[in-house]
């Protein structure tokens, strides 16, 4: 897999995860610290199907999506909604998702060992790259992840701009209390957001083993990149999540790879430092993310200052 190809695949997966994170943040206003573990949950669904029934991971995508959707809905209905009903503060909700992350980690870890006992094969680490196909010199995951991403974008565009539910969803994203007054059922939009987020995370998790090795704790490492992508783009903006995902995805693989030819391979360890640096710079310069920046205004002021300095000469 070439570097650009790998970066694109990674960015596609990151985009699915950060779209999910953003949509739940917009509707429920809680950043989901368990999003990384949601993905690993999906990885283990496809891994189980692969080991038990030798299903190719690409064919297990619908099952992973279904499992992830169920997990997402369950998390909202049985974990977050009772807390929201008790008027828990934002921090309490965040700590709850942190607790959920730990429970999921424990569950996935325990499950991986049960799976090992059943299949009598190693299950602590796995990777799907050897089972991938190749087409026109590109890896299969490149086509599949791009295809999934395109379908997702199409789905979101049609849903948000062509359906009544989409209008209601956008309204409750913009202003939840006003939307509720106008008769939008905020509860439905939240359930939808968590379903979509869980399904997307599981799909990304199902495809992730084609690019990197998976262990039960991978989710904890992944979460840094997901948050970086969402915040850099603007955590309350769906298009921002996509921009942020490609920016972070490329900087983590492509930029680090190019830096390694200058500074040596030891810099590869620092790939996530780059996304962290981008995150910190964004927070300082544009705390609401890239999508909120008025580029046209900046461009105009830049032009006027340039022409201003030109006229004085």
């Amino acid at each position: 897999m070439s570097v650009v190809e790998g970066a694109l695949v990674y960015s596609n997966l990151l985009a699915m995860l950060s779209i999910g994170l953003t949509i739940t943040y917009i509707t429920t206003s809680v950043p989901n610290f368990a999003q990384g573990s949601f993905a690993i949950f999906g990885s283990y669904i496809s891994f189980t199907l692969f080991r038990m029934y030798s299903t190719h991971p690409y064919f297990s995508l619908p099952f992973a999506a279904l499992g992830g959707a169920l997990l997402g809905v369950a998390v909202y209905l049985f974990i977050l909604r009772p807390l929201i009903r008790r008027e828990a503060s934002g921090v309490i909700l965040m700590i709850a998702t942190l607790a959920l992350d730990l429970v999921l980690l424990g569950f996935i870890g325990a499950y991986s060992e049960i799976l090992r006992a059943i299949t009598r094969k190693s299950t602590t680490k796995f990777i799907f790259t050897p089972y991938d196909f190749e087409l026109f010199g590109f890896s299969g995951i490149f086509f599949i992840s791009t295809l999934v991403m395109c379908l997702l974008l199409l789905f979101l565009l049609v849903l948000l701009y062509r359906t009544k539910f989409g209008v209601a969803l956008r309204a409750s994203m913009e202003n939840p209390s006003l939307a509720e007054v106008m008769g939008v059922n905020v509860e439905y939009t939240r359930i939808f957001a968590w379903t979509l987020s869980g399904a997307l995370a599981a799909i990304a998790g199902c495809l992730l083993p084609f690019r990197q090795e998976i262990v039960p704790a991978t989710g904890g490492i992944l979460i840094v990149s997901i948050f970086a992508a969402s915040i850099v783009g603007g955590i309350s903006n769906l298009s921002g999540a996509i921009i942020g995902a490609y920016l972070i995805g490329f900087s983590e693989s492509f930029i680090t790879y190019n830096l390694s030819s200058i500074f040596g391979t030891s810099i590869l360890l620092y790939s996530r430092v780059i996304s962290l640096a981008i995150l910190v710079i964004t927070l300082v310069l544009a705390p609401k993310g890239l999508a909120s920046v008025r580029w046209r205004k900046i461009w105009k002021s830049l032009l006027s200052s340039l022409s201003g300095s030109g006229s004085t000469q």
Binding site: I79, P82, L83, R86, A88, I92, I95, A96, L98, A99, L100, D101, L102, V103, L105, G106, F107, G109, A110, Y111, E113, I114, A117
Partner: peptide, 26 residues
């Protein structure tokens, strides 16, 4: 008769305990 390491059970237990504290005795 756990078919897995106790550390995973510890994670699940303390995670659930945290949630119960948040829900019933914040």
């Amino acid at each position: 008769h756990l078919p897995f390491e106790a550390v995973w059970l510890e994670y699940m237990m303390f995670g659930i305990l945290m949630y119960l504290v948040l829900l019933y005795k914040p």
